[in-house]
Design a protein around this nucleic acid. Structure first.
Lengths: 219, 219
DNA sequence: CTCGCCCTCAACCCACGGGTTGACACCGCG
DNA sequence: CGCGGTGTCAACCCGTGGGTTGAGGGCGAG
């Protein structure tokens, strides 16, 4: 399995990132960088002339967004796979990119080995997504899929109903005063609840409480 | 990072698979198999007494299905992650397992290295899914999420790399002083970053910043 | 080279948050 | 009936966080 080299095209508007990626990917054994585009239009053009196996695609680029470039490449070159390599994995970037036909999605935190693994996975016809992306997909699917069972959505901690309510509002970014107003109680009451919540979930401040809420599916 | 060993519990009804897994996983450096259950009921019981870091869970087991066992374990032991290791990745197995709180999903085709990677990913709080599962999730999401890409999907973000780094730590529940220590800068610098982040993402305090981070996939 | 962005740091102010103690009313339960 | 859990509220203290201003160095782009 070491025949022709894997041909890779790099597309990123930031010069340092583009050059760094070209260098990094070129060092991978059996991989050859056949071009570097600095925007979406150029990426599509280079893809058509070079017919690479994989395109490393940034999403935020001038002239043409990475998602649109991905769509065109996938439409015209079915054998060319697109590996998105971008800074953030927010829904507004993620879903259009997947919709456009990207089979891989990594953030720029990825190591060289991860990029290599992803490239090889795409060549093998697999999908390779950043763990965060996987997490978001799971969340999105569970959102839309009906709740198959789960009779009593048991709260992990022995938070009282009122405390759980307060925790949700904390996770919503509300201040103590705002929570008091929302629940029609005195600010002092809220403070009491908040302190008990912190004690129970092992949080030191609101920030940790928000983190806890999101990690435990309360928000 | 080579402190206490990772404690793993194996749950599978087939004796050869169970023993083989126990052997295989026990050979991984820094991993210790603390128990082997032959059905779902035993898996929950052993999880409660042993409090493992990761449970390798088969889905088709007598007495109690793996999905239900996963749900109970996740409800009572938030720090214990479940890695499903099953024969097939059909939707009828997959979605209930994810719904139940499994953070990892591999088929029994997986190599020892893949299992090791998955275990370490779960320990790190990440999600690790088989490429086929990733593919199915993408398909499921694109099914339910019609093309919703915004035409002028522009960037509300604009965070500098350093700011993004700080935001991640904020989302991790760290105080300014702790962030300063982690990044080896002065607390004053951290405060500057924090203020700029708040301005850019429209947050009023850390709690709202944590919320933002989780909702945008930064954490 | 110069401009602007990014990162760095310092000093100040004060409001809000976090911790503690103590109190009272309601309600279900044994 | 008395007890414990829950929800409510108040006073206090003080630390951290949040906002502002100001300033200097590095580095890439024009």
């Amino acid at each position: 399995m070491s025949g022709a080299p894997i041909r890779v095209l790099v597309a990123d508007d930031q010069r340092t990132v583009r050059d760094g990626l070209t260098m990094l990917v070129g060092l991978i054994e059996g991989v050859e960088v056949v071009g570097a585009a600095c925007d979406g239009v150029e990426a599509v053009e280079l893809a058509q002339t070079e017919r690479p196996d994989v395109v490393l695609m940034d999403l935020r680029m001038p002239r043409m967004k990475g998602a649109e470039a991905t769509r065109r490449i996938r439409a015209e070159l079915p054998d060319t796979q697109v590996l998105v390599l971008t800074t953030y994995a927010d829904d507004e970037s993620l879903f259009p990119a997947l919709q456009a036909g990207a089979r891989g999605y990594l953030t720029k935190d990825a190591s060289a080995e991860e990029i290599e693994q992803a490239i090889r996975a795409l060549i093998a016809g697999e999908t390779h997504l950043d763990p965060i992306v996987q997490q978001r997909l799971v969340a999105a699917v569970l959102d839309t899929k009906p709740i198959l069972d789960a009779p009593t959505q048991s709260l992990p901690n022995d938070l009282t109903p009122r405390e759980a309510e307060v925790l949700k509002l904390i996770a919503g970014g509300l201040s103590n005063a705002e929570i008091a107003e929302a629940l029609v109680v005195s600010p002092a009451t809220v403070k009491t609840h908040v302190n008990r919540i912190f004690y129970k979930i092992g949080a030191r401040d609101r920030a940790q409480a928000v983190r806890y809420a999101y990690q435990h599916g309360i928000a």
